[in-house]
Amino acid sequence: MEPLLKLNQLKTIFSTEKGKVTAVDDVSFEIHAGEMVGLVGESGCGKSVTSESILQLLNEKTTNYEGKILYKGKNLLELSEEQMRGIRGNEISMIFQDPMSSLNPVYTIGNQIAEAIMIHQRVGKKEANLRAIEMLRLTGIPSPEKRIHEYPHELSGGMRQRVMIALALSCKPQLLIADEPTTALDVTIQSQILELIQELREELDMGVILITHDLGVVAEVCTRVIVMYLGQIIEEADVKTLFKSPLHPYTKGLLKSIPHLDGDRTQKLNVIKGVVPSLQDVPSGCRFAPRCDFATEQCHENPPELLELENGQKVRCWNYEHILREAKDHAVTTSENK
C-alpha cells in the first residue's frame, strides 16, 4: 500500500546570524492511513521543525528545505504557495500545543470553524454552520448549538483544545499532525483528549503524527514510535518493541530516567549525563556519543547510519549488537541470581 506521507531525506536548514543550522537532518519516514505514529524527543531534537516543514509553516526567507516530502506521491516542496494553501487545513491539519494563542480571540468559535469549512469545501454559510456544530459535537462539547456563539476566552483549556481539534478536523483531513496537543492540559483532561483523538482517527481513518516528549502518552496511544535526537532519527520501531527492547542507548536512557509508578522509590533515577548540545556545534561522530555510556572511539569519529533490522526496527548506533548482547547476558545472570 502506498504510504499517505513519505519523508525522503528531508533536511531543514535555517540561516541565522551565526551561520547555517541544520535543524532536521536526513529524516525519512512513512505514515500510513489509519496509523498513529509518535514522534518523540527532547527540545531541540527537531520534532516540531519536522512537522512544520511538512506544511512549510516556517519563515520562507530564512529556511531552506532539501529532500522530498511526498504526500500521496506528490512532492509538497514543489507545490506553489497557492497549492499548499489548498493542502493545509484541508488534507493535512495541525493542532498546536497552546490552544489559546491558536484561536482568534475576536471571532466566535463557530465563526472560525465555519470559515475554515467555507474556504476549503466551497459550501454556503448555513451548511458550514451546521457542519461546525456537527464537528463540535463529535469532539464531545456539550450543547454545541449554544457553544458556537461563544468566544475562545469563555472556554476552559480542555474545551479550547477540543475546539482546536474540531477546527483541525472540520475538513476531514487525511493526515493530522498533533504537536504536543495535551502538554498544556491537566491529566484528567489529557486522557479525555487522547481518547478523543483515538476515536476520531478510527472513525475518519486518518494518519496521525503525535509529537510529544511524554513517553507515557506515546505508549498509551501510538502504534509506532520515532525517536529523534539533535535533528536525526535515532530509532524507530513499533510501540511494543520500542518499550520492551529499545536498542539505542539514548532511548534506553530516556525510558529509564522517567520515574515509574511501580518503580522502587528508594532507588535513584537513572540519568543521561550532560546536556543536549546546541545545533551550532553538533558532535562530529555519533551525535549522542558525548553523552553515551557505551561510546567507543569509532562513535566519536564516524557518524553511524540508520540501520534497519529484520523485525523492521531501525537504529542509528555502531554498538547496538554489543549492547543488545550485554543486556541479554545481564538478564540471564540476574534471573539466575534470583
Binding site: 456539550p142 476552559s156 480542555g158 474545551m159 491537566d186 491529566v187 484528567t188 483532561i189 489529557q190 486522557s191 479525555q192 487522547l194 481518547e195 511524554d214 513517553l215 507515557g216 502518552v217 506515546v218 505508549a219 498509551e220 510501540v239 511494543k240 518499550f243 520492551k244 525510558l255 522517567i258 515509574h260 509508578l261
Partner: peptide, 24 residues
C-alpha cells in the same frame, strides 16, 4: 481517577481507566 489517568510508559500495561466527565 487521577491515578488512573497517568499515562504509563508501558504499552502492554492495561488497566481500568476512569475517564472523568466534564471540566473542572
Amino acid at each position: 481517577a487521577l491515578l488512573s489517568s497517568i499515562p504509563v510508559a508501558n504499552p502492554e500495561f492495561k488497566r481500568e481507566k476512569i475517564v472523568l466527565k466534564g471540566d473542572i
